[in-house]
């Protein structure tokens, strides 16, 4: 298919997943903010719950440019939900998703487009006040539901062609990235020292981390135990039966790339294979010994590189001058 069309589908998919992830993250933050939480020590302001959605996405600087010296739930919500200038806001993500879809209407089914268009039309009418009145949790549930619905319509109506594969690829790339970020930031907010790994922990805070990736119930089913940081890391990194874990996502990503490559050798597939193997054969203790933060940072870097390679291999990004395009065919 047309490289640009594949690119639009891939990013449309990432946009929707990002919107869902933001909704999830903000919902948990919001719910947690209704409970009393411990006072932060000096130098730990970044760990303040309302700062975490910003820090996680590398948006702290952008946020403080908008709201200098002012971290309030209200401002963070506005920034992360409705700000059109913030590319990670739910508003901006849905707008971008719809624009991407509109650019390649021929590549998706009419039901998919209508569904997404409808979501956008509704989002466009919302104001902060209307969301507040309706209830933030209601709104976040709505966003999650729209994402599920779009995925359902896609799964139910779309031809299993390359376009479909790129849509799935976008979802899993974004999801894996998101899980790694949440884990990194939350883990460190809640566990500043690696010595604390085996110790007593705040049930509610760790529960919140798990809920933000819809893995709370999964944890209880798998471990039937109190929450421990090491098991949380294992669940979200290595277990491939948890849909939002890095391993589960990487399973899909690797398989999709293998299918897309078919017989040809492509760098993106090779890199995905490498990443997949590390997750498939990894052990939790190794990760802890290496340093969870370091591990996750490496993973995120590798994902950024993989994103680039996918662009070069399939999505029309030029690696070399024009005539080389013909030679490598």
């Amino acid at each position: 298919m047309l490289a640009r069309a594949a690119n639009n589908l891939y990013w449309m998919s990432r946009d929707i997943e990002r919107a869902e992830n933001s909704a999830r993250m903000l919902d948990v933050t919001y719910r947690m903010s209704l409970l009393p939480y411990r006072v932060l020590e000096e130098g730990q302001e970044w760990a303040e719950p309302w700062a975490l959605p910003l820090v996680m996405n590398g948006l702290a600087t952008a946020y403080y440019a908008r709201y200098p010296g002012n971290l309030t739930p209200d401002s963070v919500m506005r920034f992360m939900v409705l700000d059109p200038a913030n590319p990670a806001s739910i508003y901006a993500c849905l707008q971008s998703a719809r624009e991407n879809a509109r650019s390649v209407r021929g590549a998706i089914t009419s039901e998919m487009y209508e569904d997404l268009n409808e979501v956008w039309l509704q989002m466009r009418e919302m104001t902060y006040e209307s969301i507040q009145e309706r209830g933030f949790s209601e709104f976040f549930d709505w966003v999650k539901l729209q994402s599920h619905q779009f995925r359902g319509v896609t799964f139910g109506t779309m031809l299993r062609d390359e376009g479909y594969q790129f849509i799935r690829l976008g979802t899993f790339m974004e999801r894996a990235d998101n899980t790694a970020r949440i884990l990194d930031v939350k883990y460190h907010a809640l566990l500043p020292s690696v010595d604390d790994v085996g110790g007593a922990v705040d049930y509610y805070q760790w529960g919140a981390l798990l809920r933000s990736v819809s893995a709370f119930d999964a944890y209880r089913k798998v471990y039937r135990d109190i929450i421990t940081p090491m098991k949380v890391a294992e669940l979200l990194i290595l277990r491939d039966d948890v849909p939002r874990s890095m391993h589960a996502c990487m399973n899909e990503i690797y398989e999709i790339l293998r299918e897309l490559c078919d017989d040809s050798q492509k760098e993106s597939e090779r890199q995905a294979g490498e990443l997949h193997a590390r997750l498939h054969y990894g052990r939790t203790q190794q990760i802890i010994d290496h340093g969870l933060h370091e591990y996750l940072m490496e993973f995120l870097d590798a994902m950024a590189t993989l994103t680039q390679e996918i662009s070069f291999d399939f999505l029309g990004k030029a690696r070399e001058p024009l005539t080389a395009e013909l030679e490598t065919g």
């Binding site: 298919m1 047309l2 490289a3 640009r4 594949a6 999505l315 029309g316 395009e325 490598t328 065919g329």
Partner: peptide, 14 residues
Amino acid sequence: VVDDFAYMRTTHGP
């Protein structure tokens, strides 16, 4: 266009 032939950019090359 290369050598007076027209191509489009696809996911599997020109």
